[in-house]
């Protein structure tokens, strides 16, 4: 597996839809290729960061308007 192949297959690997022989080759490539291992580590860190992004709730006024819209008079 090349670095380009790994790039193309990484999300499929995460999704568990990559055939078993590809999985083995991808995991081996991650062990053997420092730049790809570094990229993979960065993407893991990115996911940790995602957990810290503020997730605002729908404003109460908008919710009230939508309830009124959906409630037959």
């Amino acid at each position: 597996m090349t670095c380009e192949d790994l790039l193309r297959r990484l999300v499929e690997w995460e999704d568990g839809v990559l055939p078993a022989d590809f999985c083995g080759a991808l995991e081996q490539h991650l062990r053997d290729c420092p730049p790809c291992a570094e990229l993979h580590a960065d993407l893991r860190h990115l996911r940790v960061l995602c957990g810290q992004i503020p997730r605002p709730d729908m404003p109460a006024e908008l919710r009230r308007k939508l309830i009124a819209l959906l409630t037959p008079r």
Partner: peptide, 21 residues
């Protein structure tokens, strides 16, 4: 060039979350 292996403080900082936004 990697941004990888940041210290934990960087991952946990509110400023980093803002930078991501």
């Amino acid at each position: 060039p990697a941004w990888s292996r940041p210290p934990d403080a960087l991952l946990e900082s509110a400023e980093t979350a803002r930078a991501l936004q």
